[in-house]
Each structure stands twice: as C-alpha cells, then as structure tokens.
Write a protein that binds this DNA or RNA. Structure first.
Length: 175
DNA sequence: ACCCCGATCGTA
DNA sequence: ACGATCGGGGTT
C-alpha cells in the first residue's frame, strides 16, 4: 500500500451530495485497516427534513455545522452507532453517512451503518474527530473508478422522494 | 426531570 | 414485514 493519497479538507468542504457520491469506492482507513466505501447517504441542512440539522443546531448535531472533514457519530435506536463525515463549508450543515464498507483486511462486508461501527467499536467517543491529518482515521483515494446507483435513503420517514443514497455497483471499465 | 422515538438489525 | 431494544436528545 504505497503512495496513499489522503483527501484534504477541501475535498469535504463541498456539497454534501457531491462528497457522498465521490466517497463511493474510496478507502476508509481506520486503525491500520483499509476499507472500500461501498454505500453512503447524504444528509443536508434546512432543505432536508430527514437531516438532524433540519431544525437547527443542537448539542448533538453541532459538528454538522462545523468544519468539514470531522467525524459525526451518534447513537441510534439506543443500541447502534452511525458514522458520518461532515461536509460543506463551516457554518453550513451537512454530513455523509457511511452505510457500508468492504474490509480488505478480513474480507468482510459491513453492509449497514450499525455494522460498520460495531465492527470497529466506533462509539460517540469518536465524535468530532478531525479526519484530516489523522494517522489512524482518514480517507484516501482509490486509483480504480467505480459505478454507483442512486436510491432513496433507508430508515427515514420524510424525504423518501430524494435519491440521496449511493451504492457501489461495479468496477467501471478500465480503458 | 422525563417522555418518546429513531439515519438499525436480525429473523420470519 | 415486523418486533426487540433502550439511550439520550429535546423539550418540560
């Protein structure tokens, strides 16, 4: 695994939809494990009723309003955690939910946000970590390019009409 | 101080 | 398709 190209803060400081799409197929590094990002969802701000940020800033969602490239981890259903990466410029809320990974070390498919966090023991202690310049937790660029499909987001009651879930489909034909 | 419900998962 | 599960966010 030579010449790793880490994504910088500018990559994440863009529209949540764009970041969510472009994260598909990239590598999420966590404590020496390398994982292909296979599934993401975009959660935006005032125009996204499904987003935690929809009704403004609270103690839970405040990292969504901060600088991009930070982790946003919260507890869901009293028993699972969800890992997000903050997007958009500072002051503008947005985050990308990491819904699926393919772990290259153990060849395990982590299909579901709860499974991702459970496998790595990611909890709210991992909230608000800077994933830029972090040696143990960061995202890097894959040299391969991938196709993805767009579907409605999972597990929400509002905003179902938006195709803001992105799923890795296949390896793009290498020319 | 406390009520209510969820960005899920596993089984049917 | 649905029920288990329960911490804590958001409001009182």
């Amino acid at each position: 695994m030579s010449d790793i190209k880490k994504f910088n803060r500018d990559f994440f400081s863009r529209s949540t939809l764009l970041v969510a799409k472009e994260l598909i197929g990239q590598y999420l590094h966590y404590n020496n494990s390398i994982n292909i990002i296979t599934e993401t969802e975009a959660y935006c701000g005032v125009d996204d009723p499904a987003s935690h940020a929809y009704r403004g800033i609270t103690s839970r969602n405040r990292v969504m309003f901060g600088e991009a490239g930070y982790s946003y981890v919260y507890l869901i259903y009293g028993m699972y955690h969800c890992l997000n990466i903050v997007s958009e410029i500072e002051g503008s809320p947005g985050a990308v939910l990491i819904r699926g990974l393919y772990n290259l070390n153990d060849k395990i498919n982590l299909n579901g946000p709860g499974k991702v966090c459970r496998h790595f023991n990611i909890t709210r202690q991992h909230n608000n970590l800077d994933l830029i310049n972090n040696p143990d937790f960061f995202v890097s660029e894959s040299t391969r390019s991938y196709c993805f499909e767009e579907t409605p987001r999972i597990g929400i009651k509002v905003g179902k009409e938006l195709n803001w879930r992105f799923v890795l489909k296949s390896l793009k034909q290498n020319l």
